[in-house]
Computed example of a mutant assay.
Amino acid sequence: MEGGGTAAARKVMVVADPTRESAGALQYALSHAVIENDTLILFHVETIPNPNAWKNPFGALFKKQPNGGGGGGCGATSSSSSSPAAAEGGGGGGGDQVDFLDAMKQACMAAQPKVKVVVVKTEMADGKDKAAAILAQSAVLKVDLLIVGHRRSLSNAILGYKRGGSLRALDTADNLILNSKCTCVAVQKKGQNAGYLLTSKTYKNFWLLA
């Protein structure tokens, strides 16, 4: 790239859920993945509501982020339906889903005020696979980098590479890594300041300091 030029803007998608793993993935994206002029897409697949799940993860993991009061050049776009592309509009009605997505968006605005933030939601039909919905949306939006939170318990570590089963959270991450057409990174946050374990097609359990 010629001197003084800026890097081409990319689309970075973070799988947004009301979980500690998803909050850790977003922290990694904000501190290590996105740069100025990128678009950060917070993509949430609506399944069974979990009204209380968002309160602890985001309160704990983002408590050190400055509130900022909303200023800055971080454009926010959200969708209120299962449309494949984000629809223009504000923050819609209340509810826990809106609350945790808003917490994520506010964290993005505080940490990366020059990154455009887009919120996209879709509903997952009965019997459909969450990973398939994420892969389809990343293709529609032409995402350059896909980031997903990763939980690796002892049982998941033992069973995680058996194919044909229906493992849940870990299988979603593994499925995305294996089948994403763009680069996919699964992130496991190790404590508040201990760093991240990263897994992709090309490396497994790569340690990155916070």
Rank of each mutant, 00 (worst) to 15 (best):
I177S: 02
K116R: 13
L154E: 10
W54H: 15
L141F: 00
I48Y: 08
S180E: 05
A173T: 11
T77Y: 05
K116M: 08
L176N: 05
K201F: 12
Y28Q: 01
K105V: 11
S83T: 12
K181I: 05
A60R: 15
G149P: 07
S80E: 11
D129A: 07
A87M: 09
G165H: 14
A139M: 03
A60D: 13
G92I: 05
A194Q: 10
P113N: 12
N156V: 13
G5D: 15
K201W: 11
T77R: 08
A131P: 01
V140K: 07
Q137N: 11
G160T: 05
G3R: 03
Q27W: 06
A60Q: 14
G73Q: 07
T183D: 02
P84A: 08
T172G: 02
N179L: 10
K128A: 15
G191S: 11
S80L: 13
D17K: 15
N156H: 07
P84I: 09
S22P: 00
G3D: 07
S79V: 08
F58W: 09
A133F: 00
G160E: 07
G89N: 08
I177V: 14
L61H: 08
N56T: 12
D17M: 12
I41E: 04
S78F: 03
K162G: 09
L61Q: 14
G149I: 02
A33D: 07
G92S: 10
K130L: 13
K204E: 13
A25S: 12
V34Q: 01
V98C: 04
K142I: 03
D126S: 14
A103I: 03
P57Y: 00
A136N: 10
A132I: 13
A33V: 15
G72D: 05
G69R: 01
L167T: 08
G164W: 06
D144I: 03
V12I: 15
P18W: 00
V143M: 03
D17I: 03
F43Y: 15
F206E: 14
A53R: 04
A136I: 03
G69C: 03
I177E: 02
E2S: 12
I158R: 03
A23W: 00
K162Q: 14
A169V: 14
G164Y: 09
K130A: 14
A76S: 02
A210D: 15
M124H: 04
Q188E: 15
N67R: 05
S83Q: 05
G195P: 05
N193Y: 10
H32G: 01
N37Y: 11
V117N: 07
